[in-house]
Computed example of a mutant assay.
Amino acid sequence: MGLRDSTGIETGSRLAEYGSTIDRYDLLLGLIPTAFAVAGIAGRIFDLSGKATLLAGVVIAALALLDGLFFRPPTRPRGT
């Protein structure tokens, strides 16, 4: 929780509270659209075709999916 001043408005950042709850799988899910965005920007900069740009995004996203689902899959929490 953030600190409140005399007006009752929180002065602390709520983002800092959620920073510790972001885990590896959240980052992998964020990597998928980021891969397509970066590939699209690189395609524009280097004047690549749409197919090559899309293929680059698919390769990066597929690697993230394979890593998250097969190479290091999620496990049950230890308490259950």
Score class of each variant (00 low, 15 high):
8 G>R: 01
70 F>A: 02
18 Y>S: 06
18 Y>L: 08
46 F>D: 09
37 A>N: 06
29 L>E: 01
60 I>D: 15
3 L>R: 08
43 G>Q: 05
25 Y>M: 01
23 D>N: 11
64 A>V: 03
61 A>F: 05
63 L>S: 08
42 A>I: 06
37 A>Q: 06
50 G>T: 14
17 E>I: 15
23 D>H: 10
67 D>S: 11
38 V>C: 12
52 A>T: 05
20 S>V: 09
54 L>R: 09
74 P>D: 10
78 R>G: 10
65 L>I: 01
14 R>K: 01
2 G>C: 06
38 V>E: 01
69 L>N: 05
2 G>V: 05
67 D>M: 12
10 E>Y: 03
29 L>H: 01
65 L>W: 01
27 L>N: 00
37 A>W: 04
80 T>C: 01
65 L>E: 04
42 A>W: 09
48 L>R: 07
31 L>Y: 10
58 V>P: 11
59 V>I: 09
71 F>T: 10
48 L>F: 09
31 L>S: 13
60 I>Y: 14
44 R>S: 02
73 P>I: 00
3 L>H: 05
17 E>N: 15
52 A>E: 13
48 L>Q: 11
61 A>P: 03
30 G>N: 13
48 L>E: 13
50 G>Q: 14
54 L>D: 14
72 R>M: 12
68 G>Q: 03
4 R>G: 11
22 I>K: 05
21 T>D: 15
76 R>L: 10
55 L>R: 10
67 D>K: 08
36 F>I: 01
22 I>C: 07
70 F>K: 04
35 A>I: 07
49 S>N: 03
41 I>V: 02
39 A>M: 12
60 I>R: 06
20 S>D: 15
